[in-house]
Design a protein around this nucleic acid. Structure first.
Lengths: 341, 341
DNA sequence: ACAGGCACCAAAAACGTTTACGGAACCGTC
DNA sequence: GACGGTTCCGTAAACGTTTTTGGTGCCTGT
């Protein structure tokens, strides 16, 4: 005899009553509820999730899909740890658990997601590293699984998303560099079709136009989102015949490789090349010269993701009357020394 | 009508037969099996995990618990992503899925684990950031949940673990520094009771004794495992009256803060202070001067964790006849420029 | 023609919960 | 004292699978 049956037997009570007592129903006397709770705690009883799920048709868990294959992910898990924490803090208020679903590097993300959806092991999903055309979005809407995307996408249809302010990063970065007198400003964009690259690039182009600067395609440099990509970027920059005087990056670890490449050529950020990096993190905070970059609170972002997801789930929507969240997440510029001329 | 029932109805066949066909049982004709598989693929049928779990008593999922509260985790760039990938590659061979379970920073890890165990949402577990006395180990053995610890512990009892070679790191680090002529060698150890700190410290002491060097307690510096801890460490070092000439670190991001602190004092690693760092990673690889540190393959470590865990699960043990794995994971020294005198 | 074996499949039980339903006991009211 | 209402609890069905059991039809060998 196991589980709730055991508990009921010990207390000489029916399993239905035990269940009601544990789930906070009203039609159970305070006395028996107390006895049930005590006995449950004593024997360390936790309801079997499979039984619950089967009956209730939900799982009380939210999934956070991360793609191990995407270089932008596999290179920085300081990012997700912070976000997880924020999401968790929201979910636990509703007795929901967070499970991270790491999609294997060698598996197609959509296929992986479909498996997870089919298995029904989560009630809702957060997806990240959204691509310009992302099949996962169709999948989720068709399956009617509540979800929110970290990163918007060009995939048609209305769905909730929160995206870092890549537009603002590019715009304010260019403004700042132009104000400092730069006119040949390069941009590093990711070499894959992750959507943030397009947003960033569009904003870069618009900013140049606004300042009356010509658009030189050779200044748009595509590199993998990794520290090695930054190193390669440095090489590309140094071997150009008409070298730019400034560059803005859109991934946090690019600066690392770029600094190194410059150092090897006897050059230095902020003196020989103005650099505006991307996300403030432990690394950029301790680089010399200090990287000018943008800050956001990972935990707050996680909280927003959690709340926005719950807002789209009927069972929790009344606690979060946010509607369909489509929100650009602001980032604050942290001046460093890397963009001084 | 949903799920397997729907499928059976469409095919004019009993649900039992459908189930057997899908699960590769022999007592079903090749013809019907083909029809079932086709129909299943056509309607995108995936068995409901709750139903399966309830019936079979397992979940076909393995959990990987990470503590968001532990600084060593929330800071650890790239570590888990790499390990996840390795674990996944093993698990998918057996149609198992990996779910990462992030324990909220403000929740007790044991309580969190107990909830997860009770819910029975995974068949086996990998725990990390093992503490010197870790209640989770008792919990898991009592509940008879197969598990493996990333990091050994002083908790009594026999259980599988894989631990990075902190002993070897300290030993070889000291040997190298002594060979280079150093005699006042400091060690940075974590300020919490995570077990690796004790292993590291013991090995440090033993190595000093072996070389006939005195043990100066003031050279054992306890700092949080973070880049900020490294900065603080640098401060502690610089304000000592009898400053050591070398130091070995046992967390990868410590070097970052330490470099910064040195730079601010006009000092440099490898010239004014010999530094041997810990784990080779994108950051240390691109620091200037290049950090002398130790390399391991995260993916291989993940593979080993996955295989060793399966070896302890009756259903999979025959594929991995490893017995109870208790293994020190070797790390290879990568010479850099930070420990030149 | 018949026993026995084989290949295939239908039926039903079981897993651990939640919850709709109904019933027993008690209370107060006319 | 009958009756409606309330409070509490037991009973049983239901969720979607897997697996056991048993049965049907066919083949084979005598």
């Amino acid at each position: 005899m196991k589980g709730i049956r055991r508990l009921a037997q010990d207390l000489n009570i029916s399993i239905g009553t035990v269940s009601r007592a544990l789930n906070g129903r009203t039609d159970v006397s305070e006395d028996t509820r107390r006895r049930v709770l005590e006995a449950a705690a004593a024997m360390g009883y936790v309801p079997n999730q499979a039984g619950r799920s089967l009956r209730q048709g939900n799982t009380n868990a939210i999934g956070f899909m991360i793609e191990l294959g995407a270089d932008i992910n596999s290179n920085s898990d300081t990012f997700f740890m912070g976000v997880f924490d924020g999401v968790q803090s929201v979910l636990t208020r509703h007795h929901l658990d967070l499970v991270a679903l790491p999609c294997p590097a060698d598996e197609d993300p959509s296929a992986y997601l479909q498996r997870m959806i089919g298995r029904r092991l989560v009630d809702g999903l957060i997806i990240s590293a959204t691509h310009r055309k992302d099949a996962r979005i169709d999948l989720l809407t068709k399956a009617r699984i509540p979800f929110i995307a970290l990163g918007r996408s060009m995939t048609p249809g209305d769905y909730p998303w929160i995206d870092l302010d890549f537009d603002g990063v590019a715009r304010r970065g260019i403004d700042r560099l132009v104000a400092a007198g730069h006119s040949r400003i390069a941009a590093a964009v990711p070499s894959n079709d992750i959507n943030l690259g397009f947003v960033f690039l569009d904003s870069y182009k618009a900013a140049l136009k606004r300042h009356g600067l010509p658009l030189d395609p050779s200044l748009i440099i595509r590199v993998p989102s990794s520290e090695v990509g930054g190193y390669q970027l440095g090489h590309d920059l140094l071997t150009m015949k008409d070298r730019p005087t400034a560059i803005i990056l859109n991934y946090e670890l690019l600066a690392l490789g770029l600094y190194r490449q410059l150092a090897e050529a006897g050059l230095q950020a902020g003196r020989d090349l103005a650099i505006i990096g991307f996300r403030d993190n432990p690394v950029s905070r301790f680089m010399s010269p200090r990287l000018t970059c943008f800050r956001l609170s990972l935990r707050d972002l996680g909280v927003a993701l959690g709340e926005s997801l719950l807002a789209s789930m009927p069972a929790y929507a009344d606690a979060y009357p946010l509607g369909m969240v489509q929100r650009v997440w602001p980032m604050e510029l942290i001046p460093g020394e890397s963009d001084l001329v």
